[in-house]
Structures are given as C-alpha cells and as structure tokens.
Amino acid sequence: MADKTPSKVQVAEYLDINLDLEVWECNKCSHGLGAATQNYKEGCLIRDRSPEDIHQPIIEGEYTFAPDPEWCRIIECYCPNCGVLIDTEYLPPGHPLTHDMEIDIEQLKAKHSANEGQ
C-alpha cells in the first residue's frame, strides 16, 4: 500500500481517497475529484471517442477488425488538472457510465488507522 501521507490511501492506479476530507483525489496531481461517497467520474472530464481512434480498422465493410462505432464507444475519464486517463469504458452509445468503485469510507478509515497503529 502506497500511502503518500497518513490521510491518503491509494485505492486505484490514479485515485487516492483523502480520509480527512473524504474526497477522491488524483494520485498524480492531488486534484480533488469530489466526495468519496460519490462516483469519482463526476469529478472527471469525460470524452466519447470512436473506437476506431484506438483500434485501427484494417479493411472496409461491416467487419473491419475494429469495434463497430455504432455499437461501441470508448468513454475516457480524465483528471481535469493533469489530464491523466483515469478510466476507460467501452459502452454502447447512451449506456450509463458504471459506478465502478463505491468504497465504504468508514471501514477504510478504520482499516488504515489500525494499520498505522501497528
């Protein structure tokens, strides 16, 4: 576990939870991303990309070797401050974004306060 300060816990590659403030923070630049009880994506910049931006089509036609942009979009979530790509989702157009991490803050506090005491 890579705590930068006692009050901060890294819970994902680019996400910390500030236990004192109970907010999500970017692990790269410490920019706040909203209440830790909410979806961190609400504090991100969001972009809808064609999958062909990332997965290069090889041939033309219905089956291009790339995802079909009418069926599949890539949703990218960026830190508004440093621009790191925090999360990607492959979703059908219009499909709700996933609330992928809903961490029990009280248990997290208790766990890390117990760890500090060891």
């Binding site: 819970v11 979703l91 499909h95 996933t98 609330h99 992928d100 991490m101 809903e102 961490i103 029990d104 248990q107 997290l108 766990k111």
Partner: peptide, 9 residues
C-alpha cells in the same frame, strides 16, 4: 480488502 461495492459491465 476494502469493503464496498465494485461493479463491472
């Protein structure tokens, strides 16, 4: 592991 709900679709 941390208590919570983790989702994937």
């Amino acid at each position: 592991f941390n208590d919570g709900t983790y989702r994937s679709t």
